[in-house]
Simulated scan of single mutants.
Amino acid sequence: MSGRVLVVDDNRVIRQLIRVNLELEGFEVVTAADGAECLDVVHQVCPDVVTLDVVMPRLDGLRTAARLRDDPQTSGVPVAIISACTPYEVESGFAAGVDAFLAKPFEPAELVRVVRQLVHGGRRQGPSQETEGPPSVDGSRRGAGRAGTPRT
């Protein structure tokens, strides 16, 4: 098994798409329909990575990420946002402790690459790296406006 991923998205089709792509690569996947459900199940699931959509009912992805960071039991779990994000949302996400962004629509191979790197590499490094712009999952620098844009 490659690791356990908690996939959080209010769109059932997107949840299923992410689940299938990750399960084909050997990940165990648990899903939640919004941020509130994520916070309800995260302690039972003990995921290696959490993926979050931004726009969701009850509790959005950025507020969910901030709450995961504030909880000592989940503060070290890598978090990836999978969403069509604005540069402002990317900046807000890094401020909330998000480790990676993947823009929708995403390439399945890019999804697997990001999740695999987070499972094996853990969280991004400390705040000292943020002075030159937020690092991507692989440690390279990207401007906030381009963060999460799939590379070709």
Rank of each mutant, 00 (worst) to 15 (best):
T64D: 05
A66V: 05
R124W: 04
D40Q: 13
P105N: 08
V13P: 01
R141K: 15
D99G: 13
V119P: 10
D40C: 06
V90K: 13
G26Q: 05
L68H: 09
A103I: 09
F106S: 02
D53M: 01
E110M: 05
Q129G: 03
S136C: 14
R146E: 15
Q129Y: 13
R15W: 03
S2F: 00
P127A: 14
V98C: 05
F106M: 09
S140W: 01
V41F: 01
V50K: 10
V54R: 08
R19D: 02
T51V: 09
E28F: 08
A147I: 15
A84P: 00
L39H: 06
V42A: 04
A36C: 01
D40A: 14
P105S: 11
L52D: 07
H120I: 03
G126S: 14
T51K: 07
Q117I: 04
E110D: 10
Q117V: 03
A144H: 07
E89P: 07
D53I: 12
G26Y: 02
Q44N: 13
Q44G: 11
P108A: 00
E91G: 08
L22C: 13
G76S: 10
E130S: 07
P72V: 12
V5H: 08
V114T: 15
F106H: 00
E132C: 05
P150M: 10
G126F: 04
V98Y: 00
I14P: 02
R69N: 08
V98Q: 02
D138G: 02
Y88C: 02
Q73C: 06
I18C: 13
V41W: 04
I18R: 10
M1H: 07
P127F: 00
P47D: 08
E107G: 09
R63H: 15
E130C: 11
D40W: 01
A103E: 11
R142I: 04
F27K: 06
G143D: 14
P150E: 13
G76A: 13
E25F: 04
S136H: 05
V7S: 14
R146D: 13
F94Q: 03
P150F: 01
